[in-house]
Write a protein that binds this DNA or RNA. Structure first.
Lengths: 145, 145
DNA sequence: CTTAATAAGTTCTAATTTGGAACTTATTTA
DNA sequence: TAAATAAGTTCCAAATTAGAACTTATTAAG
C-alpha cells in the first residue's frame, strides 16, 4: 500500500487541470509562449506540431484564458499569442516537472532545462511548504481527493 | 512579450515528463494508486477508463518504473499496482496542479482536493525557492529551455 | 464439492484525436 | 509589381481511445 493515507474524493484539481492542458501539446505550447515565442509559424516549427492542431490548441488555450491573441500591431491582421497571469501561474507546475525529470532521468550527465532567479542566476526549485512557508517532508503528507 | 526572459533550448524536462505521463490518463491512475487504490477493477471503475487502455497505462507506468506489479499474496495470479519512489516524487507536480486549479477556477465555493500535513492537518502548498530554501518571487524568474 | 460470482485481463470494432500535405488569402520585402 | 512569408484552412490518413463482449482463473456460497 501507498505511504500516503487515503481519503474521500472531492472536486479534483488534477482532473480540472488536465481538462485544460492535459493533452499532448498544450504544456509545450505554453512553455514556448512563456519563452516569448508568440507567432504561429515560430511556434509551429519550434514544436513540430501539425498546423491544424496548433490552431486548435491556441484557440482552446485562448478560450480558457491562458493566452491572449492580439494583432502584432494596431489594426494588423497577423496575430501574436501572449501568456496571461493564469498561464504564468503554471510555472510551478513546469518547475515541478523539470525537477522530477532531472532527479529521475537515467542520463544524469545531460544539460537540463531549468528556471533561474534572474538576479543571482541560481536555479530555483519546488518545495512543499505549510501555511507559514515552512518545508514539510513528503513522508508527512496525506492526499485528500 | 512574456514577462520571462528567453534562452536556448536544451534537453527539456517538460518534454521528458510528458513522454512518461503526458496522456489523458496516467496522472489520474497515479493519483488513485497514491491513494492506495491498487487493484485493476477498482482503478477501472473509479476512473471510468476503458479496460484495454487501463491495461496499457498500467504496463507503461510499470515499464517506466512508476508502478510495481506484485501478486496480492505470495504465489497468487491476481495483481496489485503500487507506487514506487519515482511515482511518489510526482506529488509536487500534483500539488502544483491542485494549487493552480484552486486559484484559477471560476467556481470558488467548491471543496477542492488537497494535500495536508498529517501531523497538523493543515494544507500544504508549493513554493518556488532558491538553493537555500528561500522563496523567490515569480517576477524574478528566467526560463532556460 | 459444485456452482455462481468476481477479478483481471484480452479482443474486436467504432469513434475521436492527431498527423501531413497541399491550398488559400493577406501582408511584407525585394 | 512580383516573390516570399505568415497565418491559417481543408481534406485524408494514421494513431489513439472508447465500448462492449469474451476468456480464464480465483473466491465465495450453498
Amino acid at each position: 500500500m501507498s505511504e500516503l493515507d487515503i481519503e474521500k474524493h472531492v472536486n479534483c484539481g488534477i482532473e480540472q487541470a488536465l481538462k485544460i492542458f492535459g493533452d499532448r501539446w498544450s504544456l509545450l505550447v505554453i512553455r514556448n509562449v512563456l519563452m516569448g515565442i508568440n507567432r504561429f509559424d515560430s511556434l509551429q516549427d519550434g514544436l513540430d506540431i501539425s498546423r491544424n492542431i496548433l490552431t486548435r490548441r491556441l484557440n482552446d488555450l485562448e478560450e480558457e484564458g491562458l493566452l491572449v491573441k492580439t494583432p502584432i500591431k494596431k489594426g494588423a491582421k497577423r496575430m501574436m499569442y501572449n501568456p496571461t497571469a493564469k498561464c504564468l501561474a503554471l510555472v510551478p507546475v513546469l518547475i515541478a516537472m523539470i525537477d522530477w525529470s532531472k532527479n529521475w532521468s537515467l542520463d544524469k550527465e545531460k544539460k537540463w532545462s531549468s528556471v533561474v532567479d534572474r538576479s543571482t542566476n541560481e536555479e530555483v526549485h519546488i518545495a512543499i511548504v505549510d501555511e507559514n512557508q515552512q518545508p514539510v517532508p513528503m513522508s508527512n503528507l496525506k492526499l485528500r481527493f
